[in-house]
Measured scan of single mutants.
Amino acid sequence: SEEEIREAFRVFDKDGNGYISAADLRHVMTNLGEKLTDEEVDEMIREADIDGDGQVNYEDFVQMMTA
């Protein structure tokens, strides 16, 4: 549901600035027990970053979650 997606976005957007940065993503993945290299984190950001601004905004996140 849209509310679940919004809630998930809030979990990833640690600093609440409306964007998921590589640092935000790394933090959440580490908490989930996933040890990722910087390259892996950057690749995840690139794949999710639809508009190419280097971070994942809510619209990018929705597209990723509903793809």
Rank of each mutant, 00 (worst) to 15 (best):
I50F: 10
N57F: 15
M65G: 01
G18M: 02
Q63I: 09
D49A: 13
E40S: 04
I45T: 03
E34Y: 11
Y58C: 02
T37Y: 04
Y58L: 07
D42V: 07
E47K: 15
D24G: 03
N17I: 06
S1M: 08
L32K: 03
N57Q: 10
M44G: 01
F12D: 00
F9L: 08
N17R: 08
V41N: 02
D53Q: 10
D38A: 13
Y19I: 06
G54I: 03
Q63R: 14
S21T: 08
A8F: 06
I50W: 08
F12N: 01
A67C: 10
I45P: 00
S1A: 08
T66V: 11
L25Y: 02
E7W: 05
G54Q: 05
N17Y: 06
Y58A: 02
M44I: 06
E40V: 09
L25F: 14
E39F: 11
E2L: 14
E2P: 13
A22L: 15
E3A: 12
Q55N: 13
T30S: 12
I5A: 03
K35P: 12
T30A: 13
A8N: 03
D49F: 11
V41C: 04
T37W: 07
N31S: 15
G52H: 12
G54F: 04
E7A: 13
Q55C: 10
A22E: 10
H27G: 07
G18C: 03
K35T: 09
E59R: 05
D49G: 15
F61Y: 06
E7Q: 10
V41W: 08
D15W: 07
V11F: 11
D38S: 12
M44C: 06
D42A: 11
S1W: 15
D60N: 13
V41M: 10
E59G: 05
I20R: 00
S21E: 04
G33E: 05
S21Q: 05
V28I: 11
D38Y: 08
K14C: 07
I45S: 03
D15F: 08
V28H: 01
Y19K: 14
E2F: 14
A48C: 14
K14N: 06
E34R: 15
F9N: 00
D24Y: 03
S21P: 06
S1Q: 07
D49K: 15
E3D: 12
R46V: 04
D53G: 07
D60H: 14
A67L: 02
A67N: 11
K14S: 08
V41S: 02
Q55I: 08
K14D: 05
E34P: 14
D51S: 13
G54L: 04
G18Y: 02
E2Q: 14
V62C: 03
N31C: 14
E47A: 15
Q55A: 05
D51G: 12
K14R: 12
E59T: 04
R6Q: 03
M65S: 02
A23M: 09
D49T: 12
R26N: 05
M29E: 00
M65Y: 05
T66G: 07
A8S: 05
T66C: 10
E34F: 15
I50G: 08
E39Q: 09
Q63C: 07
L32W: 10
A23V: 11
I5V: 07
R10K: 12
V56G: 00
A23N: 09
E40I: 12
Q63S: 09
D42W: 12
G54M: 05
S21H: 07
Q63A: 11
M64W: 07
D42G: 05
R46F: 05
Q63Y: 09
D53R: 09
R26G: 05
E4D: 11
E7I: 05
Y19D: 01
